[in-house]
Nucleic acid binder design. Structure first.
Lengths: 191, 191
DNA sequence: TTTTGTTGATTGACGAGTCAATAAAAAATC
DNA sequence: GATTTTTTATTGACTCGTCAATCAACAAAA
């Protein structure tokens, strides 16, 4: 019973299914058929809409980065003062939408994807630069010339927390993660 | 021209070739044939000695963990005082043997492997616990009850530096990495 | 003659991508 | 308003390539 205007619905379903399946399987070796089945359609349709497996992966990656970006923007808008801005970025990084088992798993796999697929690398590069500058701006007024080093430190810590979470058996602990990273910030801005 | 006593030689060559190939290809999707060719033998022989692809990967992982462990032990033995111990662990983590492009790439892929292969997860778990206790012991005398948090912080930072390195285009900068992490330590032990 | 080393050829499975065919909505034509 | 035509949605079946794993066979040392 073909209804018109299915394209965006299907694309969206496939993107979500991709993230779920990567998280569930713990591999990039999920088949297009698996993803399509979870999204409730045939693999042929998945190919029809996306052209190929790689493009499905890239779309899923863009989706995750978009959500993360939106959360950061939202948190920044609701924040005040330089310290508030930095804390906003940190908290957004461990927010409900991004710091979830499957999403963390997908992140890990996107890092792997970025090793071989230029577009994936580009996307990840954009994310890293944005994170960096989001931290850098408020940090400059907080710690002056040391801003660069501190931004690197905080950035690496956030990435590290994600990596550790990818291997943990328990569910992600947002509060603990924020506490750990904010502790470093406190140390850097002198109490 | 079969010579006797080849087994250890072949196994070693395969392990090295595995790390090289994973780093070169940027994927766990390296074929047994590729690895075997780089190690100078047929794929059949690789299967003969290791039994299967997964076991080759695990052997490569054990090799990397062994080297890392040895470097940490060596650095610890040559260190003095609690602060010296912590710095020794940090420096060993970014030492020449471990903080190299292909090895970093292999680490990333082992994290992925650990998502699905129990033995890989076990090995990575051992590494994480060892790193933690290596940091914890000297930290207890340095920062007392805060040792746990600080150890988590340093551990996450080290992992994070690795993750970032996996995506960098330039060659790993050991000195810079050490500087970044040691900065946190300084902050924690109060100058 | 038994053990150890070694490989080319083969098998069997699996999976990405293609294609032809079907069906229903929408648009165009009368 | 009733047609034909075109566009959009959808899939089952198929092709083609790849790759892990096996095996039979050969070679040299013990």
């Amino acid at each position: 019973m073909p209804k018109v205007g299915m394209e965006p619905v299907r694309r969206d379903a496939l993107v979500r299914a991709t993230i779920t399946e990567i998280g569930r399987a713990g591999t990039l070796d999920v088949t297009v058929a698996q993803i399509a089945r979870r999204a409730g359609m045939s693999s042929a349709l998945a190919h029809h809409y996306f052209g190929g497996k790689e493009q499905i992966f890239l779309a899923a990656m863009r989706h995750i980065l978009t959500i993360y970006g939106a959360e950061v923007r939202g948190a920044l808008a609701a924040s005040e003062g330089p310290e508030g801005r930095v804390r906003a970025v940190i908290r957004a990084s461990f927010s409900e939408g991004s710091f979830r088992r499957e999403v963390v798993s997908a992140w890990l796999h996107f890092y792997v994807l970025a090793q071989t697929v230029p577009e994936a690398r580009r996307l990840l590069g954009i994310y890293q630069r944005r994170l960096r500058s989001n931290l850098l701006r408020p940090l400059r007024t907080l710690v002056g010339p040391r801003a660069e080093v501190v931004a690197d430190r905080l950035g690496a810590m956030i990435d590290g927390m994600y990596l550790r979470e990818a291997l943990a058996d328990r569910a992600p602990d947002r509060a603990a993660a924020v506490r750990i990273v904010e502790g470093v910030l406190k140390g850097e801005i002198g109490q």
